[in-house]
């Protein structure tokens, strides 16, 4: 136990210029993400916004939150949390988008139910076939 009295922390202290450089990068990225909203890039806009947000988040996590110099287990907790949120949102989104057309067009669901086996695939071809039958 006597060792502990003199034990050094050996904790990495983040240099000020690193902190300021990261802050400058975060501000530039914020301006960028606001600016890119004014440009119509179609479906790319949302992905650019999310990409910039991820870069900003990585900068905050690595430097402000010290993960770059920390035990990798700390970073693992963060990465695993994000991965599971991604899985959660990804599956929920895929599922809900799959059934949204029936929510908006209940008539489609009626058609689907009128069909005989196999009723599970509502492709346009089968819908047309069924319409010619009736």
């Amino acid at each position: 136990m006597s060792q502990s009295k003199h034990a050094e922390y050996h904790v990495h202290v983040v240099p000020l210029r690193v902190l300021f450089a990261v802050f400058a990068a975060l501000i530039i990225l914020t301006i960028l993400t606001v600016g890119v909203t004014k440009v119509d890039l179609g479906g790319l806009n949302i992905w650019i916004a999310l990409g910039v947000a991820v870069v900003k988040a990585v900068l905050v996590a690595l430097y402000f939150m010290h993960l770059r110099w920390d035990s990798p287990y700390n970073g693992l907790a963060l990465v695993v949390a994000f991965v599971f949120v991604g899985v959660f949102i990804g599956f929920a989104l895929k599922d809900s988008l799959e059934y949204q057309k029936y929510v908006e067009r209940p008539a489609l669901l009626d058609r689907l139910q009128q069909q005989t086996i196999p009723a599970a695939v509502p492709s346009e071809e089968t819908t047309e076939e069924s319409s010619s039958e009736h």
């Binding site: 963060l78 949390a81 809900s96 949204q100």
Partner: peptide
């Protein structure tokens, strides 16, 4: 520190539920 990080992970998961609601409503 790792205790704090585990707590922060649960914070992200809690907000993840709201982000999921956001994604589903915006997607539809």
């Amino acid at each position: 520190k790792i205790g704090m990080w585990v707590f922060l992970a649960t914070e992200i998961l809690m907000f993840g539920g709201l982000f999921c609601a956001y994604a589903v409503y915006r997607g539809t």
